[in-house]
Design a protein around this nucleic acid. Structure first.
Length: 226
DNA sequence: CCATTAATTATCG
DNA sequence: CGATAATTAATGG
């Protein structure tokens, strides 16, 4: 295991920055980091987890195939922590995590992590903050899915990639149409059809997985109207 | 309005 | 070239 690792990458995490020096050393001793290629599984649902996973760099999807179809619950962009709800509760992962871009992940021993929460209020506060934000986002996602129709959901997905992930009107979709459908809760055929319609209406330019947003304002309207 | 089915076409390895 | 993904059209809930 590499030493002095955690001190070096610490700036990326609001929570870890609150750790004091000897806690950082302890973190280094109980943490390993792993490179993932796109499409690799970080962990699977129903597995017992003894780690908290910290995503240092990359993009990950949280999904479940508990139902007959795969459902993508959310994407999470570095930096962020995974597994917290499971690991702090019954230690069983409720969901799977799979990378969709090259990802660097740190596996942190759960006992050390719990100790930090008990010892260090600033650290604990940062973790609670992150969990709270996640919960609010989950509510928003639920509401959107409940109220919007398919073209609104696809518009949402495109705006999400453009704004939250790539900060660009031009980007390569990291998803197949199937995955987009799994994410927004619609069929892959509908995704194809709606992207085709957006293309014809010159709202986007589409060439395979290459997407250019031509009329963000209109996309926004479609997203709002549902 | 959209899922499903089915048939066709494009793309990947 | 065979397998997989994407597109398109038709049908029905």
């Amino acid at each position: 295991m590499q030493k002095t690792l955690c001190q070096n990458c610490i700036l990326q995490s609001d929570a870890a920055i609150k750790l004091i020096k000897n806690q950082l050393n302890e973190l280094t001793d109980h943490c390993s980091r792993v490179e993932f290629k796109p499409g690799e599984i970080i962990f699977k649902e129903n597995a017992i987890s003894t780690n908290v996973v910290y995503i240092q760099r990359g993009l990950v999807k949280i999904h479940t195939d508990n139902f007959s179809k795969d459902r993508i619950l959310r994407l999470t962009k570095a930096p962020s922590y995974l597994c917290l709800p499971g690991v702090l509760g019954d230690s069983i992962n409720r969901f799977s995590a799979t990378t969709i871009e090259p990802t660097l992940a740190c596996f942190i021993d759960i006992h050390v992590f719990k100790k930090f929460i008990l010892e260090n209020g600033d650290f604990a506060y940062q973790i609670i903050l992150a969990l709270s934000q996640n919960e609010i986002k989950s509510f928003q996602v639920s509401l959107n899915l409940a109220q919007k129709q398919a073209n609104g959901r696809v518009a949402d997905a495109l705006l999400y990639f453009a704004r939250e992930i790539y900060n660009s009107q031009v980007f390569m979709l990291p998803f197949s149409r199937q995955e987009l459908g799994d994410w927004m809760g619609i069929s892959r055929e509908s995704v194809s059809r709606i992207l085709g319609e957006f293309h014809s209406a010159h709202i986007i330019y589409q060439n395979g997985k290459e997407i250019t947003i031509l009329n963000e304002e209109l996309l926004e309207q479609i997203s709002q109207k549902g």
